[in-house]
């Protein structure tokens, strides 16, 4: 479990805090989406989870280890893997497999063990085929997958991803999202920072941040039901949710908490009275 208690952080002592007494708990195996407008403190928050930042006030505990304890940093960073926004700036190795081997090498594992982990990690993200390729010859999506594999080779319990789908084409984005979904199936906790509402409708939990505070924290269905609150801080809801909201405003009897096209189809076809739902 990752616990943040009354977390306060400011980059400049004169400024307003970027994180203002944030408290939250992330359970093992949970898929948590963190959303919020630019500058709301999402990235700053997640950087606390693997001790890249240490709280100025309050505390962050990772499985009971405090990030204030510098001696615990290595273990914390092994447990909480972090994938940054720009994969170009986090790939160290001269080839894909060597990059994935970087973390295990830092742990001082034997070559045979490293090889095993590299294989498993690359297999998980579907990049085994390109193990020998040079990083700069990969597409944006492939670089992201390598960055994720590099973190997985550390066998983390939590993986934090900062906007893992930005700048990707739809196919690359799909691949990354599928991998994240697989991680969750394997019981790894995923903390997914994003701007895209469509990406997170399947999350266990959505944490909405605004101006250094947690605005909402709950299941996607509950969070998106409150479209007005989200709009007030400059966020939107998924398009289908928005559509249902507009239909409701017209007086149609549809559910307010629709998240997927499938659900929306069922609601609308019931309304129109043609299709009986279910099929496409």
């Amino acid at each position: 479990m990752i616990t943040a208690q009354h977390l306060v952080y400011r980059y400049d002592p004169k400024d307003a805090p970027v994180l203002d007494r944030v408290s939250l708990e992330i359970l093992e195996g949970q898929y948590v989406a963190v959303i919020g407008p630019n500058g709301c403190g999402k990235t700053t928050l997640v950087k606390h989870f693997n001790a890249l930042l240490v709280p100025q006030d309050g505390e962050v505990l990772v499985d009971g280890l405090s990030t204030r304890d510098a001696k615990a940093h290595r273990e914390i960073r092994r447990r909480v893997g972090m994938v940054f926004q720009n994969p170009d700036n986090q790939i160290v190795g001269m080839s894909v497999e060597e990059d994935v081997a970087f973390g295990p090498g830092n742990l001082g594992l034997a070559p045979a063990e490293i090889r095993g982990r590299v294989g498993v990690a690359l297999e998980t993200v579907g990049m085994l085929r390109l193990a020998r390729r040079a990083p700069h010859s990969l597409s944006g999506g492939e670089k992201r997958l390598v960055a994720i594999a590099g973190v997985l080779a550390m066998r983390p319990a939590y993986v934090v991803l900062d906007e893992p789908t930005s700048y990707l084409d739809p196919a690359g984005r799909e691949r990354v999202l599928n991998v994240l979904w697989d991680l969750r199936q394997e019981g790894i906790s995923v903390i997914h920072v994003t701007h895209s509402m469509e990406e997170i409708v399947d999350a266990d939990r959505v944490v909405v941040m605004s101006e250094g505070k947690i605005l909402r924290d709950g299941a996607p269905r509950d969070v998106f039901r409150e479209a007005d609150a989200l709009r007030a801080v400059g966020l939107s809801t998924p398009q289908v949710t928005e559509l249902m909201g507009r239909l409701r405003a017209l007086g149609c009897e549809v559910r307010p908490d629709v998240l997927s096209v499938e659900e929306a189809f069922r609601e609308i076809s019931a309304l129109v009275g043609t299709g009986t739902g279910g099929g496409r």
Binding site: V92, F102, G105, N106, G108
Partner: peptide, 14 residues
């Protein structure tokens, strides 16, 4: 690199 456990001194290789 720090996030991936880099530290000065001995490490192992693939």
């Amino acid at each position: 690199m720090e996030g991936r456990g880099y530290h000065r001194g001995p490490r192992t290789y693939l």
